[in-house]
Design a protein around this nucleic acid. Structure first.
Length: 432
RNA sequence: UCCUCGGUAGCUCAAUGGCAGAGCAUCCGGCUGUUAACCGGAGGGUUGCUGGUUCGAGUCCAGCCCGAGGAGCCA
């Protein structure tokens, strides 16, 4: 067998006889010549098979191959403008590893429900593999950026003993005989403890929300990276968020041009994502929304439409700060100059994608934190360990959480976050 | 949980209350440069479920099931 090569490196082997190991994505024929579109996980390649070149037996076998049959093809690599990608393989041999018949996802159109029921097969599609590669790049870019800034990965537990923040609905799970654990909604509280140990830390893992949200921005299981810094204020947090977003966008533009092209993403809007991001005080945001005639309640949180309207005003992400403390989590530090406001920031992605980051500075005063826990009606005993962080060397600190799927959805220009993760978990979807 | 829309062949969709249709997929045949190839032929149906109105229901009515979009909630 000739040298096995992957399709993404096929251009380095022009003139050589090589072997491609993959699956049949599509097949066309004109009687004495077959065009087999083969994919191998790294790309798609057109294989040209002439009856006279391979003989009747091989040619006839290729004639009846179904979509997604596993095949190993040997042939000579040739540059040819008529082939997509610019290269094709002139077949001299074909081995059928496993024939497939009636693959359910044809090159024609399908509905979302149909595709989602077959998600394990749908991810073979060129568009889906492009999205998943962008996701991979985003995750690596995040890790590389934070590691490069001196952050230490310190993961937080997924089983948690009680409602962390008291604001969201949690998934309960049986924990041995008589205990109930809850799937984490945020590593936030543990992250603060880790920051007091390691200075600059992050956790990066799955997060679970049991809200019955039914929109294009929500999953019940999603991935979130949460950096947290000791000795940091709101400006430090915003600066970190800006650098992180710019780094991730730049990295994807640099290394995933091919995938973005498959997705027909207009990259000019991504190229303008540069520091600094515009900053918008909550009061200014409220003024803009009211001037637009939106039914916005001053003092309340921003709704999906509000976020869209605000983010569409800029060519880069916008940082909205100083939300009313009442709509934010209990651990958000109040602004000393405006105590009813929180030292917090939400970063809204442009083009209507909305919130991708939420964070801020944390309450570092023991008495205030105790008061906040009481105000929110949270059980004090569950937070004793958290209060220890204010008893023993409390310092100003802060951080944020960034949703991976929302980032990927924005970078890929998708309509819905459900395509940004291999197996999305949603209100009405737990299979496959 | 609420609002809106949808469910007809394997898929995507048509069908004034009056014979159940097309394209693709599948199978058979044709074609040596196709790009979601094309051309000819064949097979393929409990119209989501239950009940009702009607001479007659895919179509109208009621309830239910499933899904999508949005709202709320949230990241």
């Amino acid at each position: 067998m000739a040298n096995h090569v992957y399709i993404d490196h096929i251009g380095e082997h022009v003139g050589e006889t090589v072997t491609i190991k993959g699956w049949l994505a599509n097949r066309r024929s004109s009687g004495k010549i077959h065009f087999l579109l083969v994919r191998d996980g790294t790309g798609f390649l057109q294989v040209v098979m002439g009856r006279n070149d391979v003989g009747d037996e091989t040619f006839t076998r290729a004639d009846h191959l179904g979509q997604e049959s596993a095949i190993i093809v040997t042939g000579q690599v040739r540059a040819d403008q008529r082939a997509r990608g610019g290269y094709e393989l002139v077949a001299s041999g074909l081995e059928v590893v496993a024939a497939a018949h009636d693959f359910p996802i044809t090159p024609k159109e399908h509905g979302v429900d149909y595709l989602m029921d077959r998600r394990h097969l749908w991810i073979r599609a060129e568009r889906q593999t492009a999205i998943l590669r962008v996701r991979h790049e985003v995750i690596n870019a995040i890790r590389d950026f934070l590691n490069g800034e001196g952050f230490t990965l310190a993961d937080t537990p997924i089983f948690t003993p009680a409602a962390c923040e008291g604001t969201t609905t949690l998934f309960p799970v049986q924990y041995f005989d008589d205990n109930t654990a809850y799937l984490t909604q945020s590593g936030q509280l543990y992250n603060e403890a880790n920051a007091m140990a390691l200075g600059k830390v992050y956790c990066f893992g799955p997060t679970f929300r049991a809200e019955k949200s039914k929109t294009r921005r929500h999953l019940t299981e999603f991935w979130m990276v949460e950096p947290e810094m000791a000795y940091a204020d709101l400006d430090d947090v915003i600066g970190l968020a800006e650098r992180l977003v710019c780094s991730v966008v730049g990295r994807v533009l640099d290394r995933r041009e091919k995938e973005l092209k498959v997705l027909e993403r207009d990259t000019s809007t991504l190229a303008s994502v540069q520091s600094p991001f515009p900053r918008l005080h909550y009061d200014e945001a409220a003024k803009i929304l009211l001037e637009r005639g939106l039914p916005f309640q001053v003092g309340g949180d921003l709704g999906g439409t509000d976020e869209t309207v605000l983010s569409e005003r800029y060519d880069r992400p916008v940082c909205v700060t100083h939300y009313p403390a009442a709509v934010k989590a209990f651990y958000m530090k109040p602004d000393p100059n405006q105590p009813d406001r929180a030292l917090c920031v939400d970063v809204l992605a442009p083009e209507g994608y909305g919130e991708i980051i939420g964070g801020g500075q944390r309450v570092d005063d023991y008495d205030l934190l105790v008061a906040r826990i009481k105000e929110h009606g949270l059980p004090m005993e569950a937070f004793e360990w958290y209060l220890d962080l204010r008893r023993y060397g409390s310092v100003p600190h802060g951080g944020f959480g960034m949703g991976v799927e929302r980032c990927v959805s924005w970078l890929c220009g998708l309509e819905h976050v459900r395509e940004t993760i291999p197996y999305p978990r949603m209100l009405y979807r737990l299979y496959p």
